[in-house]
């Protein structure tokens, strides 16, 4: 038991050391940490409250008093961007966690066990995955109504299928690989084989999927907002800000640019972190 813990600790320490070697990933990590801090400490970071309207100062371009300008009812856009980080990160993380929590165990069981378990899981996956996801999400939103928890539910419940298939596919091919066969022939238990041998080897696509999935969830929220099925105002989310203000880009450029930029930044951050983690966690990596 102690041996396993020690070796696991060593594995993670090694991974961290390898991760820190990759400068881009470190920068990305810093960006995400900064944005997360911004989200957590929004009331202290932002100069105004996100819903504080100053009607006399509407439609202002960026200036010293309003570094990102003001929106159509004179709310400080920088403050809204800062508060928007909260919603967008919550949507990204929580929706992705819902997907992972459903998808990974189901996929692992299906891929490892095969047979009846695989059959049942795959039919469940089939039913879920043959639904056009946008149609399904819109139907759910139309049914439940707008609001944060419903958005999380709609995105999460349609998102786990991809993860599940990915994990299953990985497990299918890993199951046939030499080291798993070796482990099993040495009498390792199923759980031990899955957790110790297969999951770490299946981790990299999961992590890449996660790195892609978080911004995609942020985006899905933007899409729902675009169709009027997102989060209720005045709570700002970047997706909602993009969809509201995109047509304004031809003159009041700041209203469209900043939220698009922030989404791009977060996405870039998660992608690079994903790359770094993938390289760092890969047990076959020597250098």
């Amino acid at each position: 038991m102690t041996e396993i813990t020690q070796s696991t600790g060593g594995l993670w320490r090694d991974a961290l050391r390898r991760y820190m070697k990759n400068k881009l990933s470190v920068v990305a990590g810093v960006i995400i940490i900064v944005i997360s801090f911004m989200a957590i400490f929004a009331p202290w970071v932002s100069p105004y409250h996100y819903s504080e309207a100053n009607f006399d100062a509407a439609w202002q371009f960026p200036s010293w008093t309003h570094p990102m300008g003001t929106d159509s009812i004179g709310r400080d856009y920088f403050s809204r961007i800062v508060y928007g980080a909260r919603i967008s990160l919550i949507v990204g993380f929580v929706a992705q966690m819902i997907s992972l929590l459903i998808g990974v165990p189901l996929g692992a069981i299906a891929g490892f066990k095969g047979g009846k378990a695989d059959f049942i899981v795959m039919r469940l996956v089939d039913v879920m995955s043959v639904f056009p996801s946008l149609l399904f999400a819109i139907l759910i939103m139309a049914w439940l109504g707008s609001g944060l928890s419903n958005v999380l539910f709609a995105i999460g419940v349609t998102g786990w299928v991809g993860v599940c298939r990915l994990v299953r596919a990985q497990f299918l091919s890993l199951r046939a690989s030499d080291f798993v066969r070796a482990a099993r022939s040495m009498g390792a238990s199923n759980v031990h084989t899955i957790v110790r041998h297969m999951l770490p080897n299946a981790l990299s696509p999961i992590i890449v999927g996660l790195a892609m999935g978080i911004p995609q969830a942020i985006f899905a929220e933007a899409g729902l907002s675009f169709l009027g099925l997102g989060i209720n105002p005045p709570t700002p989310s970047w997706g909602q800000m993009v969809s509201s203000h995109l047509p304004n880009v031809i003159y009041y450029w700041h209203l469209a640019l900043f939220p698009v930029f922030m989404i791009a930044l977060v996405m870039l951050g998660f992608s690079l972190i994903g790359d770094g983690l993938r390289d760092a966690l890969d047990p076959r990596m020597n250098e």
Binding site: I73, S146, P233
Partner: peptide, 21 residues
Amino acid sequence: EGLQAMLNRNLNMEVEVRNVE
């Protein structure tokens, strides 16, 4: 949202804006 802000500021009224299809 402007109305929402005014009602909140002037009457201390909590209003949620719900734009539905």
